[in-house]
C-alpha cells in the first residue's frame, strides 16, 4: 500500500539540485531588485523634498540660498543614482527598469524644476544624462566597493542613462509643479513669472500634443492633467492682466513693493 514511498524531495535528486540553483539565481535577482527599489524610494523622497524646498523661492528673500541648498540635495540624489548605475554594470537596464523608474522620474522632475528656476528653460535629456556620468578617482574613492569586480573597470566612467520615456514622464509632472509655482507667484505679487510660465508651459503642452498617443500609455494619461495645469496658469495670467489694466504698469511694482514690505520680506525672484 505504501505506493508513494520516498518521493518527497530526495534532496540529492536531479530535480532538487536544479531547483537549488534556481533558488540561488532567483534570490540573487530578487535581492538586486529589492536594493534597486530601496534606492528608488530614497531617490523619490529626496527629490520630492528638493521640489518642496524649491517652492520656497516664491517666499524667501534669498533665492540663491534656496538654490544652493537644493543643489546640495540633488548632489546627494545623484550619488544614489550612481549606486543604481553600479548595480546595473553588465546588466540589461530594462530588466530592472520597473524597480527604479519611479525614483528616476521624480529625479527628472526635481532637476528640471531647478533648471527652470535658474535658467527659465527646459533641461534636455542629454544634459540630464551628462550630469549622470560619474568618473571614479583611481583608488581611494568608494570604500563601499559595491561591485568592483575587476581592476580595469575602475577606470571606465560609471554612467546612468535616463530613458526618453522616464524623461517625458518626469517633465509631465514638472508642469504640475510649475503650475503651483505660478499660483504661488501670483499670491506673492510676482507679476512676471506667471507670464513666463504660461509661455513655457504652452510650449511643453504643444510638445506633448505633438507626441500625442504615440508615446507610452502613461504619457497620454498625463496629457489631461497637463492641460488642466496649463489652463490654471493661463487663468492666472488673465487675472493679472485684467487687474493690471486698472493701474499703470509702473505703479503696479510700487503697489507690490509696499505690499512686500507688509509681509516683512524683500521681493521674491524678480
Amino acid at each position: 500500500q505504501q505506493i508513494r514511498e520516498e518521493r518527497d524531495g530526495n534532496p540529492s535528486s536531479a530535480v532538487m539540485l536544479a531547483f537549488k540553483t534556481f533558488q540561488q539565481e532567483l534570490d540573487t535577482k530578487h535581492d538586486k531588485y529589492e536594493r534597486l527599489v530601496k534606492l528608488s524610494r530614497d531617490i523619490t523622497i529626496e527629490s520630492k523634498r528638493t521640489i518642496f524646498l524649491l517652492h520656497r523661492v516664491t517666499s524667501v528673500p534669498d533665492v540663491e540660498e534656496v538654490l544652493a541648498e537644493s543643489e546640495d540635495k540633488l548632489d546627494g540624489v545623484k550619488l544614489k543614482i550612481k549606486l543604481i548605475a553600479l548595480e546595473l554594470i553588465g546588466e540589461d537596464l530594462y530588466q530592472y527598469h520597473r524597480a527604479f523608474t519611479p525614483g528616476i522620474q521624480e529625479y527628472v522632475e526635481a532637476v528640471s524644476f531647478q533648471h527652470f528656476i535658474k535658467e527659465r528653460s527646459l533641461i534636455s535629456l542629454e544634459q540630464i544624462n551628462k550630469d549622470l556620468i560619474f568618473i571614479e578617482d583611481k583608488k581611494n574613492e568608494e570604500p563601499e566597493g559595491l561591485s568592483s569586480d575587476s581592476q580595469d573597470e575602475k577606470d571606465k566612467p560609471v554612467c546612468f542613462q535616463v530613458t526618453p520615456t522616464d524623461y517625458l514622464l518626469g517633465v509631465a509632472d514638472l508642469t504640475g509643479e510649475l503650475m503651483r509655482l505660478c499660483i504661488s507667484s501670483v499670491g506673492n505679487g510676482d507679476i512676471d513669472t506667471p507670464f513666463e510660465l504660461s509661455q513655457f508651459l504652452r510650449q511643453v503642452y504643444d510638445g506633448f500634443s505633438y507626441i500625442g498617443n504615440t508615446g507610452p500609455y502613461e504619457v497620454s494619461k498625463k496629457l489631461y492633467t497637463l492641460k488642466q495645469s496649463l489652463g490654471k496658469v493661463e487663468d492666472a495670467c488673465y487675472a493679472l492682466k485684467v487687474r493690471g489694466s486698472e493701474i499703470p504698469k509702473h505703479m503696479l511694482a510700487d503697489v507690490f513693493s509696499t505690499r512686500a514690505a507688509l509681509v516683512e520680506s524683500d521681493e521674491g525672484i524678480s
Binding site: 535528486s13 530535480v15 533558488q23
Partner: peptide, 21 residues
C-alpha cells in the same frame, strides 16, 4: 497516475525551495 503523482510531488518539493515573492 502514480508515476505522475511522484513526479508532481518532486516538482512541488522543488518549488517549495524557492522564495517566490
Amino acid at each position: 497516475p502514480l508515476r505522475i503523482s511522484n513526479f508532481i510531488n518532486e516538482l512541488d518539493s522543488g518549488f517549495r525551495l524557492l522564495n517566490l515573492k
